[in-house]
């Protein structure tokens, strides 16, 4: 199956921005079951400064704001060929040791809320337990947009009882790590059934299971990723896998508009 993706992020600023940098993780990762047919990222209002592969093997490009811009347009588009792998990403690759994915981060520190979920997790073997965990996290946090904050930790989301895909992933990761399993955050694209226009980029989690390698869990939709899921970047949590992160000088307020189309071509 081919998925055609058009992802446009449009930032506008309330005043000219004297200087700033943007870090983009917008290149779909080489992954089993996922092959890039074509891909391009173009940016208006900023100039490319550096390009490298990070410790999670993400393709990272860093841009600096052009002087005194008031808007920034980031366009990524292309076609990705997808084949089904039943949510299994496969063996761990790269230099980052697996134990790194067992370290809690500020966003994924298991506290009271996570421990409560963990007490009820059941199943034979890690894979079954992870599926059960996914179900329980899904139940504990209602999917509601516009009411959560990007800086929320796993425990913040559990306390609130609602959140978005980022929060689902964080709680799942925090719990999986507390179970002693390596886990990581994935940001990417999802084609929702029957619709070309998507409301936002998506995020889900992966856990490492002995014998299978990395296995995906989309807590928000309570399923394992299939051919509709395009993996773009991975990290220990949101901060390492965010499609775009930046740092600006000046006092201008920022407004962001995202339009995303994921279309099935065959």
């Amino acid at each position: 199956m081919h998925l055609a993706i058009k992802h446009l992020t449009h930032y506008t600023y309330s005043a000219p921005v004297p200087y700033g940098v943007q870090q983009l993780r917008l290149y779909p990762k080489p992954t089993r079951g996922q092959r890039l047919i074509s891909w391009s990222v173009t940016v208006e209002g900023a100039t490319q400064q550096a390009e490298f592969t990070d410790h999670h093997r993400n393709h990272v490009v860093m841009f600096s704001f052009d002087p005194d811009v008031t808007e920034l347009i980031i366009r990524s588009e292309g076609v990705v060929e997808m084949t089904d792998t039943a949510g299994i990403v496969g063996p761990h690759e790269g230099m980052a040791p697996l134990w790194l994915f067992q370290r809690p981060t500020d966003h994924t520190r298991a506290g009271k809320g996570c421990r409560e979920i963990l007490r009820s997790v059941e199943g034979d073997g890690n894979l079954a337990r992870l599926h059960d965990l996914s179900t329980r996290v899904h139940a504990a946090i209602a999917y509601e947009t516009g009411k959560s904050e990007i800086a929320w930790t796993a425990e913040d989301a559990l306390a609130a009882g609602h959140g978005v895909c980022q929060d689902h992933a964080h709680v799942f990761i925090a719990c999986a790590r507390a179970m002693g399993l390596p886990a990581r955050y994935v940001s990417g694209y999802l084609r929702m059934d029957g619709q070309d226009e998507q409301s936002a980029t998506h995020a889900w989690a992966e856990a490492h299971v002995e014998g299978l390698g990395w296995v995906g869990f989309d807590v928000s939709n309570a399923i394992s990723p299939d051919t509709r899921y395009v993996r773009v970047a991975t990290g220990l949590d949101y901060t390492e896998a965010a499609p775009i992160s930046g740092h600006r000088y000046g006092t201008a307020a920022e407004n962001m508009d995202v339009t995303l189309h994921v279309t099935q071509q065959q």
Binding site: G20, Q23, Q49, A50, F52, V60, M62, G246, H247
Partner: peptide, 24 residues
Amino acid sequence: DPLNFNPESALGVPGIMDVYRAGG
């Protein structure tokens, strides 16, 4: 590097780690 490490830092250079990792 407030972009890659502590975002509150006013002492650093945002993006210096990116340049470092790109060999600059």
